[in-house]
């Protein structure tokens, strides 16, 4: 039987006919947040493992990108708000049930932490650097001695930040495409992988790149595995989720997702990295760029497609 649904006289901006309340700001932030989480996690990890010297780019230099990425991400988030003068309301309360509240507080801690981490390495990067004031010098000295503790906190917060970028979406049960618990791990792994790609791009040490490439290949494999599970889960679920999956299996997002995210953003760079490990010379920026670009497209597609999916009643 043919069934049609009309909503008469309703044409609310950004709600009808399809929800489109989140624009470019959210995927940009999800990407930068994931990237920052990835870099900070590996910086903390290799510091704790005592590889500060061998993995200098990972521990010391790549984190210089993080405060920039996080601040740009925060600006994007701020631009997304429609009632901007009230943004401080986020920090007058902690709401355990709201992922966005968690995320806001995590960012509040991890952004300054990443800045302090970078500050402790500033003198190594720029030998002529001076903090000018004695008390700043003392504060930085204090944190330089506490790097190990900071590394542990950084790893923990990086995981929360990475998972949060996915949970932010998966908490919305009204959007069937997002409403799957696998989105948290998927965004975390994707964020770690983009973080690694950025570090590999920056690193000049062949040994460091080899170690990082191996981890990256593993992460890409896990990510592909999670993507397969994502769709298996959808296809075995209720009508609304089957319809959500169909957007990617023949629907309007099929080409963007499978070509730019899965093939060019995951499989192809993984193959290039494997070839590189086996002695072929491949310019390092190619797989790194593809992974970063794939990660960005992935977030745009998920945010855009998720808003189209809905309950039909």
């Amino acid at each position: 039987m043919k069934e049609e649904l009309f909503i008469s006289g309703r044409d609310i901006p950004n709600i009808d006919p399809f929800l489109n309340i989140w624009h470019w700001q959210i995927p940009i932030y999800l990407f930068l947040g994931g990237l920052a989480a990835g870099i900070l996690f590996f910086a903390g990890l290799f510091y704790v493992l005592g590889k500060e010297k061998e993995m200098a780019t990972t521990v010391k230099w790549a984190p210089f990108v993080v405060p920039i990425a996080l601040v740009l991400g925060l600006i994007a988030l701020f631009l997304d708000l429609k009632h901007q003068l009230f943004f401080w309301r986020l920090y007058t309360t902690i709401r355990m049930e709201s992922p966005m509240s968690w995320g806001a507080w995590t960012l509040m801690v991890i952004t300054p932490l990443s800045m302090i981490w970078v500050a402790t390495y500033l003198k190594e990067a720029f030998p002529k650097w001076s903090w000018r004031f004695n008390f700043i010098e003392q504060i930085i000295d204090f944190f330089t001695k506490k790097r190990k503790e900071m590394a542990w906190v950084m790893m923990l917060l990086a995981i929360i930040l990475g998972v949060y970028t996915g949970i932010l979406l998966s908490a919305f049960n009204a959007r069937p495409l997002w409403n799957t618990s696998i989105l948290g791990p998927l965004f975390l792994v994707s964020g770690l992988s983009t973080g690694l790609a950025a570090i590999i791009w920056m690193s000049k040490s062949k040994i460091e790149r080899r170690i990082l490439s191996r981890i990256d290949i593993l992460l890409i494999a896990v990510e592909l595995f999670l993507i397969v599970h994502l769709f298996m889960g959808f296809l075995a679920a209720s009508t609304v989720q089957i319809e959500a999956a169909e957007l990617f299996l023949g629907g309007q997002f099929t080409v963007t997702f499978w070509v730019f995210v899965v093939i060019l953003g995951l499989i192809f760079p993984a193959v290039l990295e494997i070839l590189e490990l086996n002695g072929y010379h491949i310019p390092v920026w190619i797989p790194a760029f593809l992974i970063l670009f794939g990660g960005l497209v992935f977030r745009f597609v998920m945010v855009e497609a998720g808003q189209i999916t809905r309950y039909l009643y």
Partner: peptide, 20 residues
């Protein structure tokens, strides 16, 4: 005056009953 306009509630409503 507590709402920051983040849109989370609009995303979360299965009935699309909220608007900005």
């Amino acid at each position: 005056n507590e709402c920051i306009g983040c849109g989370a509630c609009i995303q979360s409503c299965p009935y699309d009953a909220r608007y900005s």
